[in-house]
Design a protein around this nucleic acid. Structure first.
Length: 263
DNA sequence: ATGGTAGCGTTGCTA
């Protein structure tokens, strides 16, 4: 099974790039974040025409929103709300055979890395804490689940262009990294990409739109992740970050992340 | 130390 996760930053504006991902990478399952479209306007028929007859979406007007496209039937699609808000950041689908796919869009958290001064950062930290509690009770040993999406945290030193310069920049502050690690550890989840790429090797999935030359400066961060439950680890086959997607015409600031695994 | 771009939907908010 091939899974791709991608923060598409508007599914309507970038539908042609989604078509390219579908045709070139040929994933069985695509997890999308920041679709930025209200459910009544979701391009369902267009997704189905790409070869994904089974689509779950959980969007809202203007912001956020997640979707899962699947070639094979989806047995259950369950939108989840977090921190008492209906902000459309978590969608679970169950595939035939019982494998869960969780599409996640963790809040970015704004600019000021102080939860007292910045409500958006406080929300991000609460969101991470809630995910840790949820994950601790969500899976039993032997459960097969994939958690994929824009987690908005770059946990390793090699996940950012400069660890030292990023310590007070939201996405790489110690408190976020600790909470993300707690979330991961709470269910023994394994980072499917770092399973294949050693921590000594720099790896990014996002480059700011504000850089005037993202390729030369290469000030990226690895914000997009695919995690699996222990039962799926023996089936992991390969992982790939599609860096070239950042050079496409009118790109997203995130690139697709792909994982192949035997279920 | 600062400001830079992008998308949505209106002229601000979020990333």
């Amino acid at each position: 099974m091939r899974l791709v996760t991608w923060n598409i930053n508007s599914i309507r504006l970038r539908f042609d790039l989604l078509r390219q991902v579908a045709m070139v990478m040929a994933p069985d399952v695509i997890c999308l974040q920041e679709i930025k479209v209200d459910d009544p306007l979701f391009p369902l028929a267009d997704c189905q025409a790409l070869g994904y007859p089974h689509v779950a979406f959980h969007g809202m007007k203007g912001y956020n929103g997640v979707a899962v496209l699947s070639k094979r039937p989806i047995e259950v699609a369950e939108p989840l709300s977090r921190c008492g808000r209906d902000d459309r950041r978590h969608l679970m689908v169950r595939l035939e055979g019982g494998v869960q796919v969780h599409c996640l869009y963790i809040p970015a958290g704004g600019d000021i890395p102080d939860p007292e001064a910045n409500d958006k950062f406080a929300h991000k930290l609460d969101f991470l804490r809630e995910l840790a509690v949820w994950a601790a009770g969500a899976f039993t040993p032997g459960d097969r689940a994939i958690l994929a999406g824009d987690f908005n945290v770059a946990p390793l030193e090699s996940d950012v262009w400069s660890h030292k310069q990023m310590l007070k920049v939201i996405s790489h502050t110690p408190i976020e990294v600790e909470l993300l690690n707690d979330f991961q550890a709470s269910a023994g989840l394994v980072d499917a990409v770092r399973h294949f790429v050693p921590a000594s090797e720099r790896l990014y999935t996002w480059w700011s739109y504000r850089s005037n030359d993202w390729q030369r400066n290469d000030r990226g961060r690895r914000l997009d992740h695919v995690w699996v439950t222990p039962a799926l680890v023996p089936g992991l086959r390969s992982a790939l970050v599609a860096r070239e997607a950042r050079s496409w015409t009118q790109p997203s600031d995130h690139v697709p992340v792909m994982v192949d695994l035997d279920l």
